[in-house]
Simulated scan of single mutants.
Amino acid sequence: MLVAVVAVVGMKALTSRYERTITREQLLAPDARQPRTDLSEGLNYLLVGTDRRGASDGPDQRSDTILIVHLPPGMRQGYLISVPRDLLVAIPPGGTNGYRGGQDKINAAYEHGGAGQGGAQLLSATLTRLTGIRFDGAALVDFAGFKQVINLLGGIRMCVDTEVRSIHTGTVFATGCQQMDGARALDYVRQRYDLPRGDYDRQRHQQQMLQAVLNRAGETNLRGDPLKLDRVLRAVGGSLTLDTNGVRIEDLMVALGSLPSDALSGVQVPSYPETIDGISYVVLDNGGNGLFDAVRGERVPGWATANPRWVTRL
């Protein structure tokens, strides 16, 4: 997100300064890492948002959001592929907790791995085993800390399509497009109960929030307000732990600079809910209906055209 915001405002010289605000860790397991020497091909990034609340920073966290960010060669399109948090998967042994492996919801992989670096590595290994996709990098995002970023941008515009009451605060989100501050936006995109498609609607709202942040960064005259730009980029950097797989942030920014702000699409993994032994899971529909093959083979635009049910233009 830091790279994308810098790319939006077009300020190359800032990258070296703000790289220092980001925590660097090895977030990808060795088998989940794609060897990368340049950015001439497409990119697959793993984006993990944690459900950390308040001062809690222990290992009993689950990954609240799991996104595969896919950029086909040419960097003129982007796809935010949301992995259902309740997806039933085989989690391999690993992590810092000595986890021995087993069947569970995919968002439990982060917790079984001990959260943080160990959790991200076990989650990436689980995804690679499931999809065959190796990643060019990964980012761990503290969405709770991301509230400040949204506030510094002056809020974001979100369009509520179904009225829903927050299970966290009791706030009612009425239908219609509206300006939201950081706390309200993050509360809204965490809701899944009482929505027509449950967690699938929640995934779409999270994708829309990321697009709204990028849109707002583009609308705001950050270049004309250096102090505000400094606060925004420091806040973004402070909420990120990054694994660039050896690629310089400046090179990533240059590559992303050609991505139009309206070129993102949201993708949901073809799947369906199922109750197994009294527990609610999500199960892949026909192995993902060819989505993962399309990502590996750089054929996602064609897959999206053939599968409009699972794709949303953001």
Rank of each mutant, 00 (worst) to 15 (best):
S63Q: 14
D64M: 09
T65F: 10
I66T: 08
L67C: 09
L67F: 09
I68L: 15
V69D: 00
V69I: 06
H70F: 07
L71G: 05
P73K: 14
G74M: 08
Y79G: 06
L80W: 07
L80G: 02
L80S: 01
S82V: 00
S82W: 00
S82E: 01
P84L: 03
R85P: 08
R85D: 04
D86Q: 08
L88S: 10
L88D: 11
L88F: 07
G95W: 02
G95Y: 00
T96Q: 02
N97R: 10
G98R: 07
G98L: 09
G98F: 01
Y99A: 11
Y99R: 04
Y99T: 11
G101H: 05
G102F: 13
Q103K: 13
D104P: 13
K105P: 12
I106F: 02
A109W: 09
Y110G: 04
Y110M: 06
Y110H: 08
E111F: 06
E111A: 14
H112P: 06
H112T: 10
G113C: 07
G114Q: 00
G116K: 01
Q117R: 06
G118P: 04
G119D: 05
G119R: 00
A120D: 05
Q121N: 01
L123V: 04
S124P: 00
A125E: 10
T126R: 03
L127Y: 11
R129I: 01
L130C: 04
T131H: 10
T131Y: 06
I133T: 14
G137W: 12
A138M: 06
D142R: 09
F143Q: 07
F143T: 14
A144H: 06
A144W: 08
A144P: 09
F146C: 12
F146A: 04
K147N: 13
V149Y: 04
L153N: 02
G154C: 07
G154W: 06
G155H: 03
I156M: 05
I156W: 03
M158R: 10
C159N: 11
C159A: 06
E163R: 13
E163S: 15
V164R: 13
R165P: 14
S166T: 13
S166W: 08
T169A: 09
G170A: 10
G170D: 10
T171N: 13
V172D: 12
